[in-house]
Simulated assay, not measured.
Amino acid sequence: MTFPLRAGLAAALSLAAAPALAHAVLAVTQASPNQTYRGVVQIGHGCDGKATTGITVTIPDGVIAAKPMPKAGWELSTVKGAYGRAYPSYHGSVSEGVKTITWKGGSLPDDQYDEFVFQARLTDAVAPGGTVYFPVRQDCDGAVVDWREVPAAGQSARDLTSPAPGVRIVAAAAAAPAASAPASIKAGDLTIEAPWIRATPGGAKVAGGYLQVTNTGKEPDRLVSASIPLAARGEVHQMAMDKGVAKMAPVESGLVIKPGETVVLKPGGYHLMFMDLTGPVKAGSTLEGTLTFARAGTVPVRFAVGAIGASAPEAGGGHQHH
């Protein structure tokens, strides 16, 4: 049976709105499209006094990548099947996945309470204002209660005998603008622009940093070193081709910025090398740091963090996989 996922359905279920004798409700009854949802099925009591021995959750169309949490004392199983259509994912598209999750073999007495947990990704198949329903089957020593009734348009869940737990879809809250590096930083005769760092995979010990420096004065200056909290030290390095082989070496005396000159530190050329990292540099974040010049002194800067392997900083930062 297919359960409708559409805007304009009844208001979301909540603990207060559920019938007094409901056996299965969801702890989280509101979520946004294109987000990971943590489903917590709450079982308040058994079936007419009988202990609960099995819980089966149906994953509706429009909800993908469902994964159950194992539960001590209960046997866990899933059934996979085709989705109603293909959905975009972080690694292409997906057209099938877990359709039901079952915990069985345990025993939850009628006078006790417990929770059964899964996670899944809500797609944009349901617009804000609609409700996604997760039917729950409760097995109790031979007795069965199916919490799968879905209210018709204009109908209240209170009017149903065995309502399916629901999650109301709401628009995502407007995200605060990602912190970004200033367009330019003045330090005496120097103008520093677009400082950024490449993100690193877990376990990496070095990260590359890049920027542009213009000297508007009449005296040369030298970029000597750099720092960020995650690195033990930051050096100026140069990468150059030698007989077809890329070689990298520190610029021992610092990188000279001549009067009237703009020097660009970029992948494949002059760059900053942050050494002995204590943790990963995460795409989309920013890092406070410093640049040290022979004449201008130590200058505070904010490094934007681009994606792993990026050739330039990304507007708004990168994205993370789940």
Rank of each mutant, 00 (worst) to 15 (best):
T131F: 10
A153I: 13
L76E: 10
I228T: 12
K71L: 13
D124M: 11
G317I: 12
Q155V: 14
D124C: 11
V224E: 14
T292S: 07
P165V: 03
D48H: 13
A176Y: 03
E252H: 11
V264C: 00
P4Y: 05
A183E: 15
L160Y: 14
G279V: 12
P88K: 13
P4M: 08
A194Y: 10
D61V: 10
M1T: 12
G268K: 06
L122P: 12
Y37S: 01
E149T: 00
A143W: 06
V301P: 03
Y133H: 14
T292N: 07
P250R: 15
H271Q: 14
P182D: 06
Q212C: 00
G166Y: 09
G154N: 11
G166H: 08
D141N: 11
D276T: 11
V251E: 08
A174L: 08
V206W: 05
G130K: 09
P109G: 11
I228H: 08
F116D: 05
I192V: 15
A82C: 02
I197S: 06
I228W: 06
I59P: 12
E96Y: 08
G306I: 04
D111C: 05
D189V: 02
V40P: 01
A152H: 09
A152E: 15
V79W: 02
T200E: 07
P60H: 04
G8N: 10
K258V: 03
Q112N: 07
Y270R: 07
G44C: 03
R38N: 10
G106A: 07
D141F: 10
G166Q: 08
R302A: 01
A310F: 05
Q119P: 02
A307V: 11
D141V: 09
P280F: 01
S162D: 13
G306K: 02
A12K: 10
A164V: 04
G62P: 08
V126H: 01
G129H: 13
V41N: 01
T52S: 04
Y113D: 12
D61C: 10
P182T: 15
R168S: 07
V79P: 01
R198G: 13
R148G: 05
R222H: 13
V28F: 07
V206S: 06
I257H: 04
R168G: 13
M69W: 00
G166E: 10
I257P: 00
W103L: 01
D110Q: 01
T102C: 09
A86E: 15
A181R: 09
M248S: 15
L230A: 15
T102G: 04
G318M: 05
G234F: 03
V245H: 09
G105D: 11
M239V: 15
S180G: 09
H237P: 02
L255P: 05
G309N: 11
P135S: 07
G269T: 13
W196E: 12
A120H: 05
A72G: 08
A164K: 02
A207D: 04
V79R: 12
G142I: 11
P250F: 15
S95K: 14
V41P: 05
G8K: 00
K266V: 10
R302S: 06
D48M: 08
A82N: 13
D221K: 04
S285E: 13
